[in-house]
Computed example of a mutant assay.
Amino acid sequence: MKPTITKEQEAELEAMRTSFPGGDKYILMAACDDVLGGKLAKLDLMTLAAALVNGYEVEKTPEEKVREYFEKLWTCCCGTDEIEIAEETIINTLNLLGIKIEGVNA
């Protein structure tokens, strides 16, 4: 099973993999010795091991989740009154929160 990690954890993991020859072994050793720092230190050992062995999924950002939801609305509701209401609600909410998402309200 592939665990889900954040984009920041992915960046650190891939940087460590390229920095160390045979990187996965040394990354796990550092985690076992509690000397692994940064965002990877927040992963428990089993999740880190699973990510190294099985690969991983990268967690979507809240913006990506909203964009996906917005696009899904267009797919299922396009051409109906529901889409106009839903679109307006989403855009107004984001604007009230001061959030700009490319492809939605930016």
Rank of each mutant, 00 (worst) to 15 (best):
K2N: 05
K2E: 04
K2W: 02
P3S: 11
P3C: 07
T6Q: 09
T6A: 06
T6F: 05
K7H: 11
K7I: 06
E8D: 05
Q9W: 02
E14W: 12
E14T: 12
R17G: 06
R17D: 07
S19K: 06
F20P: 00
G22P: 00
D24Q: 13
Y26N: 12
Y26M: 07
I27Q: 05
L28T: 02
L28A: 00
M29R: 12
A30D: 07
A31R: 14
C32Q: 15
D33V: 00
V35K: 08
G38R: 03
G38Y: 10
G38I: 03
A41P: 01
K42S: 03
D44C: 03
M46G: 01
T47G: 01
T47N: 06
L48F: 01
A50D: 11
A50F: 01
A51K: 00
A51W: 10
L52H: 11
N54A: 01
G55D: 08
Y56E: 04
E57H: 10
E57T: 08
K60E: 11
T61Q: 02
T61N: 01
P62G: 02
E63N: 09
E63D: 11
K65M: 09
K65W: 11
K65C: 07
K65Q: 06
R67A: 13
Y69I: 03
Y69M: 08
F70R: 10
F70P: 05
F70L: 01
E71G: 00
K72V: 07
K72I: 09
T75V: 10
T75Q: 13
C77E: 12
C77Q: 11
C78L: 09
C78H: 15
C78Q: 13
G79L: 06
G79W: 15
T80L: 09
D81T: 14
D81A: 01
E82V: 04
I83G: 02
E84L: 14
E84R: 15
I85M: 04
A86N: 13
A86K: 12
E88S: 14
E88C: 02
T89S: 12
I90M: 14
I90K: 05
I90Y: 13
I90T: 14
I90P: 05
I91C: 11
N92W: 10
N92C: 08
T93A: 14
T93Q: 03
L94F: 03
L94W: 08
N95Y: 07
N95D: 09
L96G: 11
L97E: 14
L97R: 07
L97K: 13
L97H: 10
G98D: 13
G98L: 04
G98T: 09
I99W: 09
I99P: 03
K100F: 00
K100W: 07
K100H: 11
E102R: 08
E102V: 02
E102Q: 08
G103C: 05
V104E: 09
V104G: 04
N105F: 03
N105H: 05
A106H: 15
